[in-house]
Amino acid sequence: MTKWGQVYKPLKAAILGKKLKAGESFYTLDTLCEKYNVSKITARRVLRELKLEGLLSSAGRRGTVVTDPGKNKGKNILVCLPSSSDVDNSVYKYFQGFYHIEKNCPFKIFPVQLKYLQEKYKRINDEVVLSAGLWVGEDKDGNAIEDITKFNFLTSKFNPVLIGSYKNFNGIPSVGSDYYKGFYDMTAFVVGKGHKDVAFVSPGHIQLRHAPRFKGFFDALTEGGAPFRPELLKSNPKRDAEGIKQIMNELLSLPRPPSAVICSSDNFALMILDYCEEKGIKVPDDLAVTGYDNIGISSISAPPLTTIDGRVELQSRMVVHLLEKRMGGIDISDEYVKIDPVLVIRNTV
């Protein structure tokens, strides 16, 4: 048996057997290390696994407390995420995170459609997780807008936790990637490689979810000494290959074309790689290209794409952790968790 398992199993048995009673303070990290003669890495693993099983919860200044093992039994978590092809890869990663947790939890996790929530809301007593993009639509010009009516309905009926959050929704617990940091780090990396004329391509660089991405790009660009050129900002609200082709034709016909293109998603970046292959443009020698999301195909594209991993599986785990805290009687209404993304360097810069 592993070292952490030798500590974890008797502690789990003590909680289930009520030798350690619900509401009691649990061992601190240092106490756990001393009592069982284990390292802090092992002790943290034990604490994490017990929390994932709903046997422990965080209680603010009280530290970690024992949770009633029967309290959350049979509790379901309904997860409602977008289903469009643009986000299928991210949705898959979200559910990978949820299903990994489900194996060690006393509750079940079910994917549901938005229509189901809208029709059955009076009969739903389970915990609900919503994508923060469910109420974002487009106006007649393709600009992103928030559907306030839909937002108010969903957040008032279900007391949800939000995932994929692009901002702090005051009073609603949420988890999301730090888009600003992701694009700041990527742009700083590109500028550090000597690129001064850098383009930015997104569905809409100043719209809602894309605003922090653009700000991260802008700040890193200017702080790195590269010029900000408005003509290098391009948007493709339809998110289609034809739109990308038109954008690339416009960029490369400029008197001083960009030497690098930073995209708000891997899908856009992969379309640009296809365009470059068709036009005989060598990546990264003639043009550097980057994406965001680290979807599966980005690692096997030609060439493999430099991108940002938003760590959506970790977002799923943090959402469940927040729900466990709430099930344990802790107020999480002001919780806003931003996950640090990771720069994934491959062969396109």
Rank of each mutant, 00 (worst) to 15 (best):
K18L: 03
K18I: 00
K19P: 04
L20T: 09
K21Y: 02
A22F: 06
A22E: 01
A22N: 06
G23H: 11
G23L: 00
E24G: 14
E24C: 11
E24H: 15
S25E: 07
S25H: 14
F26I: 09
Y27M: 13
T28Q: 09
L32T: 02
C33H: 07
C33T: 09
E34R: 15
E34K: 15
E34S: 15
K35R: 15
K35Q: 12
K35A: 02
N37G: 13
K40W: 02
I41R: 14
I41V: 09
I41D: 13
A43V: 03
R44Q: 09
R45L: 11
R45W: 09
R45D: 13
V46A: 07
V46S: 03
V46Y: 07
L47Y: 10
R48L: 00
L50R: 05
E53V: 02
G54I: 00
L55G: 04
S58Q: 12
A59L: 02
G60L: 00
G63R: 14
T64D: 07
V65L: 10
V65H: 04
V65I: 11
V66I: 14
G70P: 04
G70K: 15
K71N: 12
N76T: 08
I77A: 11
I77R: 01
V79R: 00
C80D: 02
C80N: 06
S83Q: 15
S84V: 01
S85R: 07
S85F: 09
V87T: 10
D88K: 15
D88R: 15
D88W: 13
N89D: 08
N89W: 07
S90F: 04
K93F: 07
K93G: 01
F95P: 04
Q96D: 10
G97W: 01
F98H: 06
I101M: 05
I101E: 03
E102L: 03
N104E: 13
C105N: 12
P106D: 08
F107R: 06
K108V: 00
K108L: 04
F110T: 05
P111E: 00
V112S: 01
Q113K: 15
Q113P: 03
Q118L: 03
E119M: 05
K120M: 00
Y121R: 12
Y121N: 10
K122R: 14
R123W: 05
R123Q: 12
I124E: 07
I124K: 14
N125A: 05
N125R: 15
E127W: 02
E127C: 03
E127A: 07
E127G: 05
E127K: 12
V128D: 01
V129D: 01
V129P: 01
L130M: 08
L130P: 01
L134Q: 07
V136F: 08
G137R: 11
E138V: 00
K140M: 02
A144E: 06
A144R: 13
A144Q: 10
I145D: 01
I145Y: 13
